[in-house]
Design a protein around this nucleic acid. Structure first.
Lengths: 201, 201
DNA sequence: CTTTGACGGAACCTATGGTTTCGTCAACTG
DNA sequence: CAGTTGACGAAACCATAGGTTCCGTCAAAG
């Protein structure tokens, strides 16, 4: 409370004491992802994760605020394989490549995403994180489409948000509801359908 | 075990005793729907439904196998407002009307559908019922599209399943993830985008 | 009047998310 | 080396919720 103490608002104390064990973090995330992707992924309990990771439940809650946070981090870590956003100057080509890349990355972790979605329905941490993730993806896709729009490769009246909803709508629909794969082939056909360069594939 | 008794495999005994009270059934479904659509719809407990309906928990489990079954029935009962499947001979018109009708019915119960979906992620009864419901809707839409295809209003190479996925994908994406409304206006634009009769709306 | 079965109330069991306590051990500092 | 900080494991603990069971009561049919 003294001015002397208040002068240093966030004292960057050099962290004494035992350090966090990185292996613990990784083990938790790895087991969480495995269990989440397993046949019974909708019902992963914290106890199960702790036991599988050979870690105490206490330690998990020491570093993550809720089960949703664990599942979110485990999933994002695996889905974040960098999806390149191409900019070759041709909309259909760019979109096709972007979607193929996205779908490939997402299809691998589809069971993860289903489980995470189930958790996000109840856990606000997971929900917020997922929204953020989804929003970032939308922004990249929107940028790609806007470039095409500016080059006149899309009709000026195109409803961008609806186009984006169509694309990600199909993706999530197949992941969450239909449980059918999203392949590079689907990416190609969808890209053509949305940009409609004449006849569909 | 005697032949005489075995001869009547399912004896349709005329049901003696006290009858089921229809008001109980209705009260449970009504309160369940209300709670599910409420601000906290993701976390409706059986106890809460029982209490709100002025009914014993025992009675609920007497008639429904699980919470998911209750929520499913409550939702379907409200979403089953008959959606007419028009057949005027013009694909775009038919599709537009069908989607407008569907979206109007679905948009009203969007919170219900979100809650039911959350439950379906864990309860197989709810999941199976939902799949059935979704499958029936897909079949109607497919029929409508096939008629247009037969009349040559769609390119012969059109991938019907992907078209259906695009449509219902957008709908579910807006309901579950974006939480944006699905309006008659969206129906119009989507119908035109999918049938692409020249320029988009 | 007797039987059947619906209904309410309440106790009960189990699983799970989340918290707390305690003891131990590893790392850094003086 | 000694003391302090803090990560970690073990286990008890609490609250909530889904689901079951038991009991007593009441309504409808023969």
């Amino acid at each position: 409370m003294s001015p002397e103490l208040a002068r240093e608002p966030v004292a960057p104390r050099p962290h004494t004491g035992r350090r966090r064990n990185p292996a613990v973090r990784q083990a938790v995330l790895d087991r969480a992802a495995e269990l989440l992707a397993g046949p019974d992924g909708m019902a992963v309990s914290i106890d199960a994760i702790a036991q599988a990771a050979g870690v105490s439940k206490h330690t998990i809650y020491r570093w993550w605020p809720s089960k949703g946070a664990v599942l979110l981090e485990a999933t994002v870590e695996r889905a974040q394989k960098e999806v390149t956003v191409p900019d070759t100057g041709a909309l259909t080509t760019d979109l096709e490549a972007f979607l193929a890349d996205t779908f490939r990355a997402v299809d691998e972790v589809a069971p993860l995403l289903r489980g995470l979605m189930a958790e996000a329905m109840r856990d606000t941490v997971a929900a917020d994180g997922m929204r953020e993730f989804i929003s970032a993806r939308r922004n990249e896709l929107r940028g790609l489409l806007v470039r095409g729009l500016d080059r006149g490769e899309l009709p000026a009246e195109t409803d961008l948000e609806m186009t984006i909803d169509q694309i990600y709508g199909l993706m999530w629909y197949r992941i969450l509801i239909a449980r059918s794969p999203v392949t590079a082939d689907v990416a190609t056909r969808l890209a053509r359908a949305v940009t409609r360069p004449g006849a569909p594939g």
